[in-house]
Design a protein around this nucleic acid. Structure first.
Lengths: 150, 150
DNA sequence: ATTTGGGGTTCCCTCAAGGAACTTCAGCTG
DNA sequence: CAGCTGAAGTTCCTTGAGGGAACCCCAAAT
C-alpha cells in the first residue's frame, strides 16, 4: 500500500489518526459540528473535491463518527455527529485553543466559544481526571500499558 | 497548487492542521516527546521514508515546534520540543484519551500516563478556563470572533 | 414530459508518499 | 596517511491519492 496504515500500530495516537487523520477529515467534522450537515453545504463551504468528500464521509460513517440520516422522501440525507463523533470534537477544541494562541495574529480568533454552564467566552483547559490539577506534556511520565507490543 | 493550503483559512483548526496536519507529523511529535530525538531513531521507530521525515522535520522546525540542536562536534543534531511544541502535545493527549476509549480493544491502552502532581495513572479532562466545569462539544455555542472573515 | 437540485461517480492530470540507492562530513582505526 | 564508519540527509523512480470538471441518477414540482 502506498500511504502507510496507521490503524495497526500499537498507539492510540496512530489509531486515532487512522480515523480522522486524513486531509480534510477534521474540517468536515468541524463543519458538521457547526451545522453544515449536507453534502452540498460542506462541499461549498470547504471547496473540497466532491470525490474526496464522498470518500471521507463514507470513512467517517464507517467508523461511527457520523451517521447518515434521511431528511426527505427524496433521497436526501444529512450527516449528524454520533456520541463517539462528538467526543472527537474535543480534539478540535484543543486545536482551536492552540491555533487561537499561536496563529491567529492581530485579527484575533475567527470564532468564539460560549460555554453554556457559565455563559462566558471560554477556551478549554486540560486537567487530570484524578486530581483536577493541570495536566500537560511536561507534567507526565510515560509507562508501557497492557496493550503495548514488545 | 495540488494539495489545498489550509494555512490561509480563517479557522484555527485549519491553521493548526497546516502546522501538524500532514501525514506523520503528529507521530513525529509523539516520538520527540517520548524521547526519540534523533533522525535515525525516529526513522527506525516509525518506518517513515527518510525523504518525508526530512521534510516534516524542516516544516516543524520552521514553525517553531521543534528546535534543531547539535549534540556533538560532528554534524549531529537532535530535535527538541519548544514551548510552543510542548503545548501542541496537549493535542496528542486528547487523541490518546479518545483512542484509548474507542479503539484500544480488549488489550487495553498501549501506553499509560502518570501525572506528576498526583502520581496516578490518569487521562486528561477538558474544563472551561472560566468556570472550571466540563467543556465539551455539546456544552458550547459558536459565535463569530474578531478574526472572522465575511 | 420536462425541469430542478441534491448527492454522488467517472475520468484524467498532477503532485506527494514510499523505497532504495547514493552522498557528505567528521572522527576513528590501523 | 588511507580507509572505514555512522549520522543525517539527498536523489531518483514508481505508485497512488488529491484536484477539478463533467457526467449520472432519482424523486418531486411544474
Amino acid at each position: 500500500m502506498q500511504r502507510t496504515d496507521f490503524g495497526d500500530m500499537a498507539c492510540s495516537i496512530a489509531r486515532t489518526l487512522d480515523v480522522i487523520g486524513e486531509p480534510w477529515s477534521p474540517l468536515i467534522l468541524r463543519d458538521v459540528f457547526a451545522g453544515f450537515t449536507r453534502f452540498e453545504q460542506i462541499q461549498a463551504d470547504l471547496g473540497i473535491s466532491r470525490k474526496v468528500l464522498t470518500e471521507r464521509l463514507n470513512h467517517l460513517v464507517g467508523h461511527g463518527i457520523l451517521e447518515r440520516r434521511p431528511y426527505d422522501r427524496r433521497p436526501r440525507h444529512e450527516y449528524v455527529l454520533t456520541d463517539k463523533g462528538a467526543e472527537l470534537v474535543d480534539l478540535l477544541l484543543v486545536m482551536v485553543r492552540w491555533g487561537d494562541k499561536h496563529l491567529a495574529g492581530d485579527a484575533g480568533p475567527p470564532v468564539l466559544y460560549r460555554h453554556h454552564a457559565c455563559g462566558q467566552i471560554s477556551a478549554v483547559d486540560l486537567r487530570c481526571d484524578h486530581c483536577d490539577k493541570p495536566m500537560h506534556a511536561r507534567d507526565i511520565d510515560l509507562l508501557p500499558g497492557p496493550g503495548a507490543r514488545p
